[in-house]
Amino acid sequence: MTWRWKAKEKTQPNWPDYLASRAQRVREPRLASFYARGTLDPATPIGEAPLVAMDFETTGLDGSRHDIVSVGVMPFTLERIRPADGRYWVLSPRRQLSDESVAFHHITHAEVAGAPDFNAIIDDLLPMLAGRLVVVHYRQLERTFLDAAIRERLGDGLLMPMIDTMSLEARIHRQSWWARLRRWAGRPMASIRLHESRQRYHLPAYTGHHALVDSLATAELLQAQILYHYDWQTPVSALWR
């Protein structure tokens, strides 16, 4: 079965080339300077890579209909996570905040009322991501929402390589021959949600659904995944998507 996702790997974009070409074409100065920083050499060992965990809380799952309500970013390396370097913003969604999402994120209407628009944090956010490899749990969400939010405000989208701790977990617990065998035998699939994934590595439980806590939780999870299933020499190209 392995040939299938090896084949998939060949179709993934060559990130350094993609970023370089975007740097050439993008007019918007903030995006241009982001792209100009480029990304890591694909051969960089993960143990030496500057990383940044990122987590969004959103009003829903559809990037075209829903908005980001909070952003947490946590720069780190496999050697150390420094929570003091983390940043967190509560944002004002352009569309209405539903009561369900209030209950889910514990972010209240009042908090959101005085919060800035995403536009106001772009100047702080992009430099924190530039030159670092972004780590998220479930890349579809962060990638889509970041792309949409930037596109709406700067007129052009933003794509970058990301390590997705959820898909790393899926590779191990869902796509391995053992996981397939278990599923064939009718056993339930291992949960690859952030909290359940962390439990497999005996990481402590955190109060969930806070963008900064979740980005810290994601950073710790990656440290554990690398030790368990890879090593510090693994090139970033084997991990990013």
Binding site: E79, R80, I81, R82, P83, A84, Y201, H202, L203, P204, L216, A219, E220, Q223, A224, L227, Y228
Partner: peptide
């Protein structure tokens, strides 16, 4: 506010005799 974090796998040697040490270690879990 100054804490730094790192995960170690079971069986890892955390501190080797005579190695320099520059932090206090606190076990979160």
């Amino acid at each position: 506010g100054e804490v730094e974090i790192r995960y170690f796998q079971a069986g890892t040697e955390l501190l080797v005799k005579d190695q320099p040490i520059d932090s206090l270690w606190y076990i979160r879990s």
